[in-house]
């Protein structure tokens, strides 16, 4: 089931003309539709990115070289060959404070620009911190 706010047709006034479109301003997901895995693009790439190097030996850096800086669980995620990582339950609980975030169709900006393009923006300002650095 889709959950658009304003599922009824949006009517815009284009300089005297009236244009009707089926795409609402806000496009929402239900809380139950929130993704529960993060995607790791690295294993899908045609060529692997060059590895980080130890600054002294210039040999590829391993988990131990990062251990003084980062928690081991994050180092594992940094180097994982898995395509998907389950998002921990505690993180999902915090995400639910504002996620899923809305996708908006910028109908009014399109009108100002008088463009045939259709502009969508994914808005992360709904997080308590006001940006994607929400957690």
């Amino acid at each position: 089931m889709s959950s658009f706010v304003g599922m009824s047709r949006t009517v815009l006034d284009y300089g005297g003309r009236t244009m009707t479109t089926n795409v609402p301003h806000q496009i929402h997901l239900e809380e139950s539709e929130m993704p529960t895995q993060w995607y790791n693009v690295v294993p899908d790439l045609p060529t692997a990115p060059p590895p980080p190097l130890h600054p002294g030996t210039h040999e590829p850096a391993g988990p131990d070289d990062f251990a003084p800086l980062f928690p081991m669980a994050l180092i594992e995620q940094e180097m994982t060959p898995e395509r998907y990582i389950d998002i921990p339950g505690e993180v999902l609980d915090v995400y639910r404070l504002w996620r899923p975030s809305p996708l908006f169709r910028a109908h009014r900006l399109e009108k100002l620009l008088d463009t045939p393009a259709r502009i969508y923006y994914k808005y992360e300002g709904v997080s308590p911190a006001g940006s994607q650095h929400g957690v």
Partner: peptide, 14 residues
């Protein structure tokens, strides 16, 4: 990437 995963689902809805 949860941002892009959500956006994919949302664009598919329209």
């Amino acid at each position: 990437t949860i941002i892009g995963e959500e956006a994919l689902l949302q664009l598919a809805k329209v």
